[in-house]
């Protein structure tokens, strides 16, 4: 029952079970897919910017998962009297910070907190903003009015400002000597609580466009329920702009975490993170600038990778931009 297959066609045709005529129109899924996503993937693979940023991010994930592969030093073994602000030497390529800790080891181990905050915050933001945006855009009416006003309220308070106030509130769940999870969680929650409105607005806008497309009418006409339309047809087709924004925001959240840690409200100082190390290095900018330089560069490079990845994905998903 294979009909002739044209590029992108299977996205416009409902899956078998909602086709009363039993597969008359269904598309053979064993043929190579040419959906928006595979199209995008094909153009991504040829984009050097994507390849470089993706390679950097994969490397970063490796560092986060297995820091001990990259350094034998213990970042917590700090010899204040011998090594304070020591110059780089064999085995210690980045030298030592004020406390006499190995800067290279701290940069390697500090990746974990920063990247965890970035990834988990983005995940929360996409889930909250995506669901609310899809509901508001798809069902419209009173639900949309309420959700949109709530979003306006959260949007009206600048992110870092709101996160500071939120963290002040959450600091009590931490206890006195929190472990890694309890240290990171408040920062993630505070940033996510005020980071989602942007995603909500973008998702809502995308859903508003998609829900008026012909293929949604087509799905409705062959008996798809509203909920099925939303889940199977509208949301997958509205996700593209959200993914672009999410990639870029991941970098922004990492910067926000470091800012909060610098203000002394983010991660507790005993958690190793780039933000904490940069804040510590503030005192020695004049005497040993490299103590500031290395964690700051690691952070900047990470953020840069995510911004470039987001740019590349946007170019790939937006055919208008691709032509030029």
């Amino acid at each position: 029952m294979t009909s002739e297959h044209r590029p992108g066609q299977e996205r416009f045709v409902a899956p078998l079970e909602e086709t009363p005529l039993k597969a008359v129109d269904s598309v053979d899924t064993s043929s190579p897919p040419t959906s928006m996503w595979s199209d995008a993937w094909r153009s991504l693979r040829r984009n050097p910017l994507f390849l470089v940023s993706a390679a950097l991010i994969l490397f970063l994930i490796l560092v986060v998962a297995f820091p001990s592969l990259f350094t034998d030093e213990n970042p917590r073994r700090c010899l204040l009297s011998e090594n304070s602000l020591g110059a780089p030497r064999a085995g210690h390529p980045f030298g030592f910070d004020q406390q006499g800790c190995d800067v290279f080891a701290r940069v390697v181990y500090g990746a974990r907190a920063s990247v965890t905050v970035g990834i988990l915050t983005t995940l929360f933001v996409v889930v909250i903003g995506g669901i609310l945006g899809a509901l508001a855009g798809f069902y419209g009416g009173l639900l949309d009015a309420i959700l949109s006003r709530v979003t306006d309220v959260f949007f009206a308070i600048p992110l870092v400002l709101a996160a500071i106030v939120g963290l002040q509130m959450l600091k009590n769940i931490r206890g006195d000597s929190p472990g890694f999870v309890l240290s990171v969680l408040p920062v993630i929650l505070a940033l996510a609580a005020f980071g989602w409105p942007q995603v909500m607005r973008i998702m809502r806008g995308a859903v508003l466009t998609v829900k008026n497309m012909e293929y949604i009418d087509a799905a409705t006409s062959i008996g798809a329920t509203r909920r099925r339309n939303l889940v199977r047809h509208v949301v997958p087709n509205a996700l593209a702009p959200v993914i672009v924004v999410a990639t870029v925001s991941l970098g922004i959240f990492i910067v926000a975490e470091s800012t909060l840690s610098y203000l002394g409200l983010g991660l507790p100082s005993r958690v190793m993170s780039w933000g904490n190390d940069i804040a510590q290095a503030q005192n020695v900018v004049g005497t040993a600038p490299r103590v500031l330089f290395y964690p700051a560069s690691a952070l900047a490079l990470t953020v840069l990778s995510f911004i470039l990845l987001g740019d590349a994905v946007r170019d790939a998903l937006d055919p208008k931009a691709r032509k030029r």
């Binding site: 800012t259 940069i278 500031l292 952070l299 900047a300 911004i307």
Partner: peptide, 18 residues
């Protein structure tokens, strides 16, 4: 512009101040 976005504002502040 990419560097300005990627480097946290307080790092820029320290460096400019110094």
């Amino acid at each position: 512009s990419l560097l300005l976005i990627a480097v946290p504002i307080f790092v820029l502040g320290f460096v400019a101040q110094f």
